[in-house]
């Protein structure tokens, strides 16, 4: 697993600044939750870490390498940093197993037969063995999202990013996806989550950051931040979110 350090990350779309000088440290095996209202910059920050969006200024260190350096090969980063999206984004024309094996096949050049056991073990770990041969539209939202997690894990990432992965799910399906995150955490995965699940953040996160207008206004251990927020904006947000 790897650690992440963000230094003064700035990202603007046209003249709208979405990340306005973000500093963040994520230690090896740590789970960091980003909270804040929609539009605070949580998703953009995650996309920047994965180099899906190039940043305008600042640095992103993945194990002491500045991956945000212009010209750095984004493919190398994305193979080490997995990402799961709010809308699952499984490939609809492939079965769950093919979704999971596509990137390892293409990137490492290994064959389906060669990858099958590994893939099956991952599916088993998340209780999905029976779903391997199914297409995404034959799966529930919770199953699709867990397949998306398996798909990212198949590349053996050192850091995982989760972008509001339970926000599109029916309430009764949220639990199974959060259980998958707990399992990953217990295996020592370095994780950064953008989330609206305050209960989960409080229970599972090592560190919680509150974002507003592209800045981290307050950060700290989950218990401290939820119990005794110092910043007035954090207090107001939590009062609304936890009501």
């Amino acid at each position: 697993m790897a650690k992440l350090e963000l230094r003064e990350v700035i990202k603007a779309f046209d003249d709208k600044t979405v990340c306005d000088g973000i500093d963040l440290d994520v230690e090896v095996g740590e789970m960091v939750c980003l909270i804040g209202a929609s539009g605070a910059g949580k998703s953009t920050l995650l996309r920047c870490i994965n180099l899906l969006e190039p940043i305008d200024d600042g640095a992103i260190y993945l194990d002491d390498t500045d991956i945000a350096e212009p010209g750095f090969d984004p493919l190398l980063v994305r193979r080490r940093v997995g990402m799961v999206f709010q809308s699952y984004n499984l490939f609809p024309h492939m079965t769950a197993a093919e979704n999971v094996m596509l990137a390892p096949r293409r990137v490492t050049g290994r064959s389906r037969a060669d990858l099958k056991d590994e893939a099956e073990a991952l599916f088993a770990q998340f209780g999905l063995v029976d779903q391997m041969a199914k297409y995404p539209d034959q799966l529930s939202g919770g199953q699709q999202q867990r397949v998306a997690i398996v798909r990212a894990l198949a590349m053996r990432p050192e850091v995982m990013l989760f972008d509001e992965i339970t926000s599109a799910l029916d309430p009764q399906l949220v639990g199974e996806v959060l259980d998958a995150l707990r399992a990953l955490k217990s295996q020592g995965m370095t994780m950064v989550l953008a989330t609206h699940e305050m209960g989960f953040a409080r229970e599972a996160a090592d560190k919680v950051c509150f974002l507003k207008h592209g800045r981290i206004l307050e950060e700290g251990p989950a218990e401290t931040l939820f119990q005794a927020p110092q910043n007035a904006e954090t207090q107001a947000f939590l009062a609304r979110a936890l009501k």
């Binding site: 994965n50 997995g82 999206f85 984004n89 499984l90 490939f91 990137v107």
Partner: peptide, 28 residues
Amino acid sequence: ESQRAAARSLGLSERQVMRDVVLPQAIR
């Protein structure tokens, strides 16, 4: 676009994204 983003996030090159993810869906 989210299909491309998902494929790119897995470390696939632009060519692989087109061939394995975008084209099969587009042609159908």
